[in-house]
Design a protein around this nucleic acid. Structure first.
Lengths: 226, 226
DNA sequence: TGGTTTGTTTGAACCTGTTCAACAGGTTGT
DNA sequence: ACAACCTGTTGAACAGGTTCAAACAAACCA
Protein backbone atom coordinates (compact mmCIF):
# COMPACT_ATOMS: atom_id res chain seq x y z
CA UNK A 1 0.00 0.00 0.00
CA UNK A 2 0.91 3.67 -0.28
CA UNK A 3 1.79 4.42 3.30
CA UNK A 4 4.42 1.74 3.50
CA UNK A 5 6.11 2.83 0.34
CA UNK A 6 5.81 6.41 1.34
CA UNK A 7 7.47 5.63 4.59
CA UNK A 8 10.25 3.89 2.70
CA UNK A 9 10.59 6.89 0.48
CA UNK A 10 10.67 9.35 3.34
CA UNK A 11 13.30 7.16 4.90
CA UNK A 12 15.30 7.19 1.71
CA UNK A 13 15.10 10.93 1.36
CA UNK A 14 16.12 11.44 4.97
CA UNK A 15 18.97 9.04 4.31
CA UNK A 16 20.45 11.09 1.49
CA UNK A 17 20.00 14.21 3.57
CA UNK A 18 22.07 12.64 6.30
CA UNK A 19 24.58 11.31 3.80
CA UNK A 20 25.10 14.81 2.48
CA UNK A 21 25.46 16.21 5.99
CA UNK A 22 27.98 13.54 6.94
CA UNK A 23 29.93 14.16 3.75
CA UNK A 24 29.93 17.87 4.49
CA UNK A 25 31.21 17.39 8.03
CA UNK A 26 33.90 15.03 6.82
CA UNK A 27 35.08 17.49 4.16
CA UNK A 28 34.84 20.41 6.59
CA UNK A 29 37.02 18.57 9.07
CA UNK A 30 39.50 17.54 6.40
CA UNK A 31 39.86 20.91 4.68
CA UNK A 32 38.31 23.43 7.04
CA UNK A 33 35.12 25.31 6.30
CA UNK A 34 36.54 27.84 3.83
CA UNK A 35 38.55 25.41 1.73
CA UNK A 36 35.76 22.88 1.49
CA UNK A 37 33.80 23.13 -1.75
CA UNK A 38 30.19 22.22 -2.32
CA UNK A 39 31.28 20.19 -5.35
CA UNK A 40 33.57 18.05 -3.26
CA UNK A 41 30.90 17.60 -0.60
CA UNK A 42 28.40 16.53 -3.25
CA UNK A 43 30.86 14.13 -4.84
CA UNK A 44 31.73 12.67 -1.44
CA UNK A 45 28.01 12.13 -0.84
CA UNK A 46 27.57 10.62 -4.31
CA UNK A 47 25.09 13.22 -5.54
CA UNK A 48 25.07 16.25 -7.82
CA UNK A 49 25.64 19.74 -6.44
CA UNK A 50 22.01 20.56 -6.94
CA UNK A 51 20.98 17.79 -4.57
CA UNK A 52 22.98 19.36 -1.76
CA UNK A 53 21.06 22.58 -2.35
CA UNK A 54 17.80 20.70 -2.44
CA UNK A 55 18.37 19.64 1.16
CA UNK A 56 20.34 22.60 2.46
CA UNK A 57 19.82 26.22 1.55
CA UNK A 58 23.49 27.07 1.56
CA UNK A 59 26.94 26.06 2.67
CA UNK A 60 26.25 27.89 5.92
CA UNK A 61 23.09 25.86 6.37
CA UNK A 62 25.21 22.72 6.56
CA UNK A 63 27.08 24.15 9.51
CA UNK A 64 23.78 25.22 10.98
CA UNK A 65 22.46 21.67 10.66
CA UNK A 66 25.53 20.39 12.44
CA UNK A 67 25.00 22.98 15.15
CA UNK A 68 21.36 21.99 15.58
CA UNK A 69 22.19 18.31 15.80
CA UNK A 70 25.00 18.95 18.29
CA UNK A 71 22.71 21.07 20.38
CA UNK A 72 19.97 18.46 20.41
CA UNK A 73 22.35 15.66 21.39
CA UNK A 74 24.04 17.72 24.05
CA UNK A 75 20.74 18.89 25.52
CA UNK A 76 19.79 15.28 26.16
CA UNK A 77 23.11 14.34 27.74
CA UNK A 78 23.28 17.54 29.78
CA UNK A 79 19.72 17.10 30.94
CA UNK A 80 20.53 13.63 32.25
CA UNK A 81 23.73 14.64 33.99
CA UNK A 82 22.28 17.76 35.57
CA UNK A 83 20.10 15.60 37.79
CA UNK A 84 23.21 14.16 39.43
CA UNK A 85 24.71 17.55 40.15
CA UNK A 86 23.73 19.53 43.21
CA UNK A 87 25.65 22.76 43.52
CA UNK A 88 25.67 25.49 40.93
CA UNK A 89 29.37 24.91 40.40
CA UNK A 90 28.79 21.25 39.63
CA UNK A 91 25.96 22.11 37.28
CA UNK A 92 27.93 24.70 35.37
CA UNK A 93 30.80 22.27 35.08
CA UNK A 94 28.48 19.65 33.63
CA UNK A 95 27.30 22.03 30.93
CA UNK A 96 30.69 23.46 30.06
CA UNK A 97 32.57 20.16 30.14
CA UNK A 98 29.98 18.62 27.85
CA UNK A 99 30.35 21.41 25.32
CA UNK A 100 34.12 21.36 25.34
CA UNK A 101 34.18 17.58 25.04
CA UNK A 102 31.60 17.50 22.29
CA UNK A 103 33.19 20.19 20.15
CA UNK A 104 36.76 19.10 20.76
CA UNK A 105 37.04 17.05 17.52
CA UNK A 106 35.40 19.84 15.52
CA UNK A 107 37.03 22.95 16.87
CA UNK A 108 37.74 24.23 13.38
CA UNK A 109 34.14 23.71 12.34
CA UNK A 110 32.92 25.47 15.44
CA UNK A 111 34.99 28.45 14.44
CA UNK A 112 32.69 28.89 11.45
CA UNK A 113 29.95 29.42 14.00
CA UNK A 114 31.78 31.84 16.23
CA UNK A 115 33.52 33.74 13.44
CA UNK A 116 30.74 36.27 12.92
CA UNK A 117 29.70 39.05 15.27
CA UNK A 118 27.07 40.45 12.93
CA UNK A 119 23.61 39.55 14.29
CA UNK A 120 22.41 39.70 10.68
CA UNK A 121 24.66 36.83 9.67
CA UNK A 122 22.84 33.49 9.86
CA UNK A 123 25.71 31.76 11.62
CA UNK A 124 26.29 34.44 14.24
CA UNK A 125 25.61 33.28 17.80
CA UNK A 126 23.38 36.36 18.03
CA UNK A 127 21.35 35.83 14.87
CA UNK A 128 17.67 35.18 14.36
CA UNK A 129 18.55 31.79 12.92
CA UNK A 130 20.32 30.61 16.05
CA UNK A 131 17.73 32.15 18.37
CA UNK A 132 15.94 28.90 19.16
CA UNK A 133 19.12 27.12 20.15
CA UNK A 134 20.28 30.16 22.09
CA UNK A 135 17.01 30.43 24.00
CA UNK A 136 17.08 26.78 24.93
CA UNK A 137 20.64 27.14 26.13
CA UNK A 138 19.73 30.20 28.18
CA UNK A 139 16.83 28.28 29.68
CA UNK A 140 19.16 25.45 30.65
CA UNK A 141 21.45 27.86 32.46
CA UNK A 142 18.49 29.54 34.08
CA UNK A 143 17.09 26.27 35.32
CA UNK A 144 20.48 25.08 36.58
CA UNK A 145 20.90 28.28 38.56
CA UNK A 146 17.35 28.33 39.83
CA UNK A 147 17.32 24.73 40.96
CA UNK A 148 20.56 25.12 42.86
CA UNK A 149 18.95 27.90 44.86
CA UNK A 150 20.76 30.94 43.54
CA UNK A 151 19.01 34.11 44.65
CA UNK A 152 19.57 37.41 42.90
CA UNK A 153 17.95 40.79 43.55
CA UNK A 154 14.90 41.32 41.33
CA UNK A 155 16.71 43.91 39.24
CA UNK A 156 19.23 41.30 38.08
CA UNK A 157 17.33 38.06 38.36
CA UNK A 158 15.74 38.20 34.87
CA UNK A 159 19.19 38.35 33.29
CA UNK A 160 20.81 35.46 35.12
CA UNK A 161 20.36 32.90 32.34
CA UNK A 162 21.56 35.26 29.66
CA UNK A 163 24.56 36.28 31.74
CA UNK A 164 25.62 32.70 32.26
CA UNK A 165 25.12 32.04 28.55
CA UNK A 166 27.25 35.05 27.74
CA UNK A 167 29.97 33.78 30.06
CA UNK A 168 29.89 30.41 28.34
CA UNK A 169 30.00 32.05 24.92
CA UNK A 170 33.05 34.08 25.87
CA UNK A 171 34.84 31.00 27.13
CA UNK A 172 34.03 29.02 24.00
CA UNK A 173 35.15 31.87 21.79
CA UNK A 174 38.44 32.08 23.64
CA UNK A 175 38.78 28.32 23.39
CA UNK A 176 38.19 28.18 19.66
CA UNK A 177 41.07 30.54 19.00
CA UNK A 178 43.27 29.38 21.86
CA UNK A 179 46.55 28.29 20.29
CA UNK A 180 48.24 27.19 23.49
CA UNK A 181 48.98 23.44 23.72
CA UNK A 182 45.84 21.54 24.63
CA UNK A 183 44.13 24.90 25.15
CA UNK A 184 45.74 25.17 28.56
CA UNK A 185 45.07 28.90 28.63
CA UNK A 186 41.35 28.42 28.25
CA UNK A 187 41.33 25.86 31.01
CA UNK A 188 43.20 28.18 33.36
CA UNK A 189 40.79 30.99 32.50
CA UNK A 190 37.89 28.60 33.01
CA UNK A 191 38.94 27.63 36.54
CA UNK A 192 39.66 31.16 37.64
CA UNK A 193 36.60 32.82 36.17
CA UNK A 194 34.26 30.10 37.36
CA UNK A 195 35.41 30.63 40.94
CA UNK A 196 35.01 34.37 40.54
CA UNK A 197 31.58 33.97 39.05
CA UNK A 198 30.43 31.84 41.96
CA UNK A 199 31.76 34.29 44.51
CA UNK A 200 30.16 37.16 42.65
CA UNK A 201 26.79 35.41 42.61
CA UNK A 202 27.11 34.62 46.31
CA UNK A 203 27.78 38.18 47.39
CA UNK A 204 25.35 39.62 44.85
CA UNK A 205 22.59 38.78 47.31
CA UNK A 206 24.06 40.90 50.09
CA UNK A 207 22.01 44.10 50.55
CA UNK A 208 25.21 46.07 51.04
CA UNK A 209 25.65 46.00 47.28
CA UNK A 210 22.31 47.55 46.45
CA UNK A 211 23.78 50.56 44.58
CA UNK A 212 25.77 48.15 42.43
CA UNK A 213 22.65 46.13 41.71
CA UNK A 214 20.91 49.22 40.48
CA UNK A 215 23.77 50.13 38.17
CA UNK A 216 24.17 46.64 36.79
CA UNK A 217 20.42 46.35 36.29
CA UNK A 218 20.35 49.58 34.31
CA UNK A 219 23.21 48.43 32.12
CA UNK A 220 21.58 45.12 31.38
CA UNK A 221 18.29 46.85 30.63
CA UNK A 222 20.02 48.91 27.95
CA UNK A 223 21.81 45.95 26.41
CA UNK A 224 18.84 43.60 26.38
CA UNK A 225 16.02 46.11 25.90
CA UNK A 226 13.32 45.02 23.39
CA UNK B 1 66.26 64.01 -15.98
CA UNK B 2 65.14 60.70 -14.52
CA UNK B 3 64.37 61.75 -11.01
CA UNK B 4 61.88 64.40 -12.03
CA UNK B 5 60.08 62.10 -14.40
CA UNK B 6 60.26 59.28 -11.91
CA UNK B 7 58.63 61.50 -9.36
CA UNK B 8 55.90 62.27 -11.87
CA UNK B 9 55.46 58.60 -12.49
CA UNK B 10 55.29 57.70 -8.86
CA UNK B 11 52.75 60.45 -8.50
CA UNK B 12 50.70 59.06 -11.34
CA UNK B 13 50.74 55.54 -9.97
CA UNK B 14 49.82 56.80 -6.53
CA UNK B 15 47.03 58.76 -8.18
CA UNK B 16 45.37 55.72 -9.70
CA UNK B 17 45.79 53.88 -6.44
CA UNK B 18 43.87 56.61 -4.70
CA UNK B 19 41.31 56.77 -7.49
CA UNK B 20 40.64 53.05 -7.04
CA UNK B 21 40.36 53.42 -3.28
CA UNK B 22 37.95 56.35 -3.62
CA UNK B 23 35.88 54.41 -6.13
CA UNK B 24 35.81 51.46 -3.77
CA UNK B 25 34.64 53.54 -0.82
CA UNK B 26 31.98 55.19 -2.95
CA UNK B 27 30.66 51.85 -4.15
CA UNK B 28 30.90 50.34 -0.67
CA UNK B 29 28.86 53.20 0.74
CA UNK B 30 26.32 53.00 -2.06
CA UNK B 31 25.84 49.23 -2.04
CA UNK B 32 27.37 47.98 1.19
CA UNK B 33 30.51 45.86 1.33
CA UNK B 34 28.94 42.55 0.31
CA UNK B 35 26.90 43.83 -2.62
CA UNK B 36 29.76 45.87 -4.03
CA UNK B 37 31.60 44.09 -6.86
CA UNK B 38 35.21 44.50 -7.83
CA UNK B 39 34.09 44.93 -11.43
CA UNK B 40 31.92 47.90 -10.53
CA UNK B 41 34.67 49.41 -8.42
CA UNK B 42 37.12 49.05 -11.31
CA UNK B 43 34.66 50.56 -13.77
CA UNK B 44 33.95 53.44 -11.40
CA UNK B 45 37.68 54.06 -11.17
CA UNK B 46 38.06 53.80 -14.94
CA UNK B 47 40.43 50.84 -14.91
CA UNK B 48 40.29 47.10 -15.56
CA UNK B 49 39.66 44.65 -12.72
CA UNK B 50 43.26 43.55 -12.87
CA UNK B 51 44.42 47.05 -12.01
CA UNK B 52 42.49 47.02 -8.77
CA UNK B 53 44.28 43.80 -7.88
CA UNK B 54 47.61 45.29 -8.88
CA UNK B 55 47.20 47.91 -6.16
CA UNK B 56 45.19 45.94 -3.61
CA UNK B 57 45.59 42.29 -2.78
CA UNK B 58 41.89 41.69 -2.30
CA UNK B 59 38.51 43.23 -1.69
CA UNK B 60 39.29 43.04 2.01
CA UNK B 61 42.50 44.94 1.40
CA UNK B 62 40.45 47.89 0.19
CA UNK B 63 38.65 48.02 3.52
CA UNK B 64 42.00 47.67 5.23
CA UNK B 65 43.36 50.64 3.29
CA UNK B 66 40.34 52.65 4.36
CA UNK B 67 40.94 51.60 7.95
CA UNK B 68 44.59 52.61 7.77
CA UNK B 69 43.80 55.99 6.32
CA UNK B 70 41.04 56.62 8.87
CA UNK B 71 43.39 55.67 11.66
CA UNK B 72 46.14 57.97 10.39
CA UNK B 73 43.79 60.91 10.05
CA UNK B 74 42.17 60.34 13.41
CA UNK B 75 45.50 59.94 15.17
CA UNK B 76 46.47 63.44 14.04
CA UNK B 77 43.19 65.01 15.12
CA UNK B 78 43.07 63.13 18.40
CA UNK B 79 46.67 64.00 19.15
CA UNK B 80 45.90 67.71 18.72
CA UNK B 81 42.75 67.64 20.83
CA UNK B 82 44.24 65.58 23.62
CA UNK B 83 46.47 68.50 24.55
CA UNK B 84 43.43 70.56 25.44
CA UNK B 85 41.95 67.89 27.68
CA UNK B 86 43.03 67.53 31.28
CA UNK B 87 41.12 64.80 33.08
CA UNK B 88 41.04 61.19 32.03
CA UNK B 89 37.33 61.50 31.39
CA UNK B 90 37.86 64.41 29.04
CA UNK B 91 40.63 62.54 27.25
CA UNK B 92 38.62 59.39 26.78
CA UNK B 93 35.72 61.44 25.50
CA UNK B 94 38.00 63.08 22.96
CA UNK B 95 39.10 59.73 21.60
CA UNK B 96 35.70 58.07 21.57
CA UNK B 97 33.81 61.07 20.19
CA UNK B 98 36.31 61.37 17.39
CA UNK B 99 35.89 57.74 16.42
CA UNK B 100 32.12 57.81 16.51
CA UNK B 101 32.03 61.06 14.52
CA UNK B 102 34.55 59.83 11.98
CA UNK B 103 32.91 56.48 11.34
CA UNK B 104 29.34 57.78 11.48
CA UNK B 105 28.98 58.13 7.69
CA UNK B 106 30.57 54.71 7.14
CA UNK B 107 28.98 52.57 9.80
CA UNK B 108 28.15 49.86 7.29
CA UNK B 109 31.72 49.82 6.04
CA UNK B 110 33.03 49.64 9.57
CA UNK B 111 30.92 46.56 10.11
CA UNK B 112 33.11 44.77 7.56
CA UNK B 113 35.95 45.42 9.99
CA UNK B 114 34.20 44.32 13.16
CA UNK B 115 32.37 41.38 11.60
CA UNK B 116 35.17 38.86 12.21
CA UNK B 117 36.29 37.47 15.54
CA UNK B 118 38.83 35.12 14.04
CA UNK B 119 42.34 36.48 14.72
CA UNK B 120 43.42 34.70 11.54
CA UNK B 121 41.12 36.80 9.41
CA UNK B 122 42.94 39.83 7.98
CA UNK B 123 40.11 42.21 8.84
CA UNK B 124 39.64 41.04 12.40
CA UNK B 125 40.41 43.67 15.04
CA UNK B 126 42.66 41.02 16.59
CA UNK B 127 44.58 40.02 13.46
CA UNK B 128 48.24 40.30 12.60
CA UNK B 129 47.30 42.67 9.81
CA UNK B 130 45.64 45.18 12.11
CA UNK B 131 48.31 44.83 14.81
CA UNK B 132 50.13 48.06 13.96
CA UNK B 133 46.97 50.14 14.12
CA UNK B 134 45.89 48.35 17.27
CA UNK B 135 49.21 48.94 19.00
CA UNK B 136 49.14 52.62 18.13
CA UNK B 137 45.63 52.88 19.49
CA UNK B 138 46.60 51.10 22.67
CA UNK B 139 49.55 53.46 23.04
CA UNK B 140 47.25 56.45 22.68
CA UNK B 141 45.02 55.17 25.46
CA UNK B 142 48.04 54.39 27.59
CA UNK B 143 49.45 57.85 27.14
CA UNK B 144 46.09 59.50 27.82
CA UNK B 145 45.74 57.58 31.06
CA UNK B 146 49.31 58.06 32.10
CA UNK B 147 49.38 61.81 31.47
CA UNK B 148 46.20 62.35 33.43
CA UNK B 149 47.88 60.79 36.44
CA UNK B 150 46.05 57.48 36.70
CA UNK B 151 47.87 55.16 39.06
CA UNK B 152 47.28 51.44 39.06
CA UNK B 153 48.94 48.73 41.13
CA UNK B 154 51.93 47.22 39.31
CA UNK B 155 50.06 43.97 38.67
CA UNK B 156 47.48 45.77 36.53
CA UNK B 157 49.37 48.78 35.23
CA UNK B 158 50.85 47.04 32.16
CA UNK B 159 47.35 46.22 30.91
CA UNK B 160 45.76 49.63 31.28
CA UNK B 161 46.12 50.63 27.62
CA UNK B 162 44.84 47.31 26.37
CA UNK B 163 41.91 47.38 28.77
CA UNK B 164 40.86 50.82 27.62
CA UNK B 165 41.23 49.70 24.00
CA UNK B 166 39.08 46.67 24.74
CA UNK B 167 36.44 48.88 26.30
CA UNK B 168 36.46 51.08 23.21
CA UNK B 169 36.26 48.07 20.92
CA UNK B 170 33.25 46.73 22.78
CA UNK B 171 31.49 50.06 22.56
CA UNK B 172 32.19 50.41 18.84
CA UNK B 173 31.02 46.87 18.21
CA UNK B 174 27.79 47.55 20.05
CA UNK B 175 27.41 50.79 18.13
CA UNK B 176 27.89 49.20 14.72
CA UNK B 177 25.01 46.84 15.28
CA UNK B 178 22.88 49.18 17.38
CA UNK B 179 19.55 49.48 15.56
CA UNK B 180 17.95 51.92 17.98
CA UNK B 181 17.19 55.36 16.49
CA UNK B 182 20.37 57.44 16.34
CA UNK B 183 22.10 54.68 18.29
CA UNK B 184 20.62 56.01 21.51
CA UNK B 185 21.29 52.72 23.25
CA UNK B 186 25.01 52.93 22.56
CA UNK B 187 25.10 56.48 23.85
CA UNK B 188 23.31 55.49 27.06
CA UNK B 189 25.71 52.59 27.49
CA UNK B 190 28.61 54.91 26.78
CA UNK B 191 27.66 57.38 29.51
CA UNK B 192 26.99 54.75 32.12
CA UNK B 193 30.01 52.59 31.48
CA UNK B 194 32.37 55.53 31.21
CA UNK B 195 31.35 56.69 34.68
CA UNK B 196 31.75 53.19 36.03
CA UNK B 197 35.13 52.83 34.40
CA UNK B 198 36.35 56.06 36.00
CA UNK B 199 35.11 55.05 39.42
CA UNK B 200 36.66 51.64 39.03
CA UNK B 201 40.01 53.13 38.08
CA UNK B 202 39.83 55.52 41.03
CA UNK B 203 39.19 52.86 43.61
CA UNK B 204 41.53 50.39 41.95
CA UNK B 205 44.38 52.25 43.65
CA UNK B 206 43.02 51.65 47.13
CA UNK B 207 45.13 49.03 48.94
CA UNK B 208 41.98 47.51 50.40
CA UNK B 209 41.41 45.85 47.04
CA UNK B 210 44.73 44.07 46.91
CA UNK B 211 43.22 40.56 46.67
CA UNK B 212 41.13 41.73 43.73
CA UNK B 213 44.22 43.19 42.06
CA UNK B 214 45.95 39.88 42.34
CA UNK B 215 43.02 38.01 40.78
CA UNK B 216 42.56 40.50 37.98
CA UNK B 217 46.29 40.49 37.29
CA UNK B 218 46.31 36.71 37.01
CA UNK B 219 43.38 36.75 34.62
CA UNK B 220 44.97 39.35 32.40
CA UNK B 221 48.23 37.44 32.43
CA UNK B 222 46.44 34.40 31.04
CA UNK B 223 44.60 36.34 28.36
CA UNK B 224 47.56 38.37 27.17
CA UNK B 225 50.35 35.87 27.83
CA UNK B 226 52.93 35.36 25.05
C1' DT C 1 69.12 54.88 -32.22
C1' DG C 2 67.57 50.38 -30.76
C1' DG C 3 67.35 46.88 -27.16
C1' DT C 4 66.39 45.79 -22.28
C1' DT C 5 64.45 46.25 -17.93
C1' DT C 6 60.88 47.76 -14.87
C1' DG C 7 56.37 49.22 -13.76
C1' DT C 8 51.52 49.35 -15.17
C1' DT C 9 47.32 47.75 -17.49
C1' DT C 10 44.37 44.72 -19.73
C1' DG C 11 40.81 41.22 -20.21
C1' DA C 12 40.08 36.48 -20.63
C1' DA C 13 39.95 32.51 -17.80
C1' DC C 14 39.41 30.09 -13.42
C1' DC C 15 37.14 28.76 -9.11
C1' DT C 16 33.39 28.35 -6.15
C1' DG C 17 28.70 29.37 -4.15
C1' DT C 18 24.25 29.36 -5.96
C1' DT C 19 20.18 29.00 -9.22
C1' DC C 20 17.22 26.82 -12.34
C1' DA C 21 15.00 24.49 -16.21
C1' DA C 22 14.57 19.97 -17.30
C1' DC C 23 13.82 15.33 -16.22
C1' DA C 24 12.90 10.75 -13.78
C1' DG C 25 9.99 8.00 -10.96
C1' DG C 26 6.37 7.18 -8.16
C1' DT C 27 1.53 8.30 -6.38
C1' DT C 28 -3.12 9.84 -6.81
C1' DG C 29 -7.51 10.67 -8.93
C1' DT C 30 -10.61 9.53 -12.59
C1' DA D 1 -4.74 3.37 -18.46
C1' DC D 2 -3.90 8.14 -18.50
C1' DA D 3 -3.14 12.71 -16.82
C1' DA D 4 -1.85 15.57 -13.14
C1' DC D 5 1.18 15.91 -9.55
C1' DC D 6 4.68 15.64 -6.05
C1' DT D 7 9.43 14.49 -4.74
C1' DG D 8 14.13 14.00 -5.87
C1' DT D 9 17.96 14.60 -8.94
C1' DT D 10 20.75 16.35 -12.50
C1' DG D 11 24.17 19.34 -14.66
C1' DA D 12 24.61 23.42 -17.21
C1' DA D 13 24.69 28.29 -16.44
C1' DC D 14 25.46 32.50 -13.75
C1' DA D 15 27.78 35.79 -10.59
C1' DG D 16 31.48 37.60 -8.34
C1' DG D 17 36.40 37.25 -6.27
C1' DT D 18 40.84 36.26 -7.98
C1' DT D 19 44.77 34.96 -11.19
C1' DC D 20 47.75 35.42 -14.98
C1' DA D 21 49.91 35.61 -19.51
C1' DA D 22 50.34 38.98 -22.56
C1' DA D 23 50.54 43.79 -24.07
C1' DC D 24 51.95 48.36 -23.33
C1' DA D 25 54.72 52.27 -21.70
C1' DA D 26 58.22 54.62 -19.66
C1' DA D 27 62.98 54.66 -18.26
C1' DC D 28 67.43 53.12 -18.72
C1' DC D 29 71.51 51.39 -21.16
C1' DA D 30 74.60 50.49 -25.15
Amino acid sequence: MGSELEEKKLKKSEETRIRILEAALSVFCARGFEKATMREIATEAGVAVGAAYYYFDSKDALVMAFYERSHREMQVEIGAELDHAKTLEARLRVILSKKFAYFEPNRSLLSALTAHTDPQHPLSPFSQETAIIRDEDVATFERAAHESGVKLPPSLSPYLGRLLWMYQMGLILFWVYDRSPEQKKTMALYEKTLKMLLVALKIAGVPLFRPLHKLAGELLAIVYED
